[in-house]
Amino acid sequence: MINEQIRDKEVRLIGAEGEQIGIVPLKEAQRLASEKSLDLVKIAPQAKPPVCKIMDYGKFKFDAAKKEKEARKKQKTVSLKEVRLSASIEKHDFETKMRNAEKFLKAGDKVKISVVFRGREMMHTQKGYTILEQALVLLEEIGVAEQKPKFEGRSMIIVVAPK
């Protein structure tokens, strides 16, 4: 709440430079604010009596928006990239997929490596563990596994995060 929106009888007033003025009637606080061509802003409505501060409200809102924009700029969103392998993958194909996974990790993204089992391959799930272990060995310098390999339907999955 600012200026005339404040409806309390008396308020604890803080000056424009942050100095404590004390408990004053609302009309007095509004008069002091208007003399300095500033706004009276309620900053702690739950206090007894409520705390108000004399400040330039437009500048305060502008600075707050600027800080929020800067914080959003510095924020890095981590996305999850997926590399799908099969239980009967050849060596060269495996190496190509691992190069892609390495590229994703270096870019700062998490990588979900999944080994998909088709038909009778479900009886040889040990191959999936072997493939995922080989992948972790290749990526151990730049990534770390978040959890142990687990099954999701017909695929075995592991998530690797960048170090």
Rank of each mutant, 00 (worst) to 15 (best):
S155Y: 13
Q147C: 09
V160Y: 01
E152F: 08
P149G: 06
Q147R: 15
S155R: 15
I157T: 04
A135V: 02
V137I: 15
V137N: 11
E152T: 07
E133T: 10
A145N: 00
A161S: 15
T130K: 13
A161D: 09
V160D: 00
V159T: 07
G143Y: 00
I131C: 05
Q134C: 07
R154D: 15
E140F: 08
L138I: 06
P149L: 04
L136G: 14
K150P: 02
I158T: 08
K148V: 08
Q147F: 14
E141F: 10
K148I: 08
Q134I: 04
L132S: 03
K148F: 09
T130D: 14
G143I: 00
R154G: 10
M156A: 02
E133A: 14
K150T: 12
G153M: 02
I131P: 04
L132C: 07
I142C: 03
P149C: 05
E152P: 04
Q134E: 14
A135E: 06
E146K: 11
R154L: 14
V159P: 01
L138D: 05
V160R: 00
E146H: 06
E152D: 11
I131H: 04
M156D: 00
L138N: 07
V144A: 10
I131N: 05
K148S: 10
Y129C: 08
A145L: 01
P149K: 02
L132P: 05
G153V: 04
Q134G: 10
M156G: 05
G153I: 05
Q147I: 09
F151D: 05
A145P: 06
K148W: 07
P149A: 06
Q134L: 10
F151T: 09
I158Q: 03
E140A: 11
Y129N: 15
L139T: 04
V159G: 00
S155K: 14
E146L: 12
Y129E: 13
Q147K: 15
I142A: 02
Y129K: 12
G143Q: 01
F151M: 15
V137Q: 13
A161P: 06
V137M: 11
L138S: 07
E133N: 13
L136V: 12
R154S: 15
M156H: 03
E140M: 10
I142R: 02
I131S: 03
Y129V: 12
Y129H: 14
K148A: 11
R154E: 12
A145I: 00
V160Q: 00
I142Q: 02
F151G: 08
Q134N: 13
E140H: 13
Q147V: 11
V160W: 02
Q147L: 11
I142H: 04
V160L: 01
E133S: 14
I131Y: 05
A161L: 08
A161F: 06
F151E: 06
V144Q: 11
I142D: 03
Q147G: 13
G143M: 00
M156R: 00
K150Q: 12
Q134Y: 08
A145V: 01
A161W: 06
E140L: 06
E140K: 13
M156S: 02
E152S: 08
M156I: 03
E133F: 09
L139P: 03
L136S: 11
R154P: 14
A145W: 00
A161Y: 07
R154Q: 14
Y129L: 14
K150I: 10
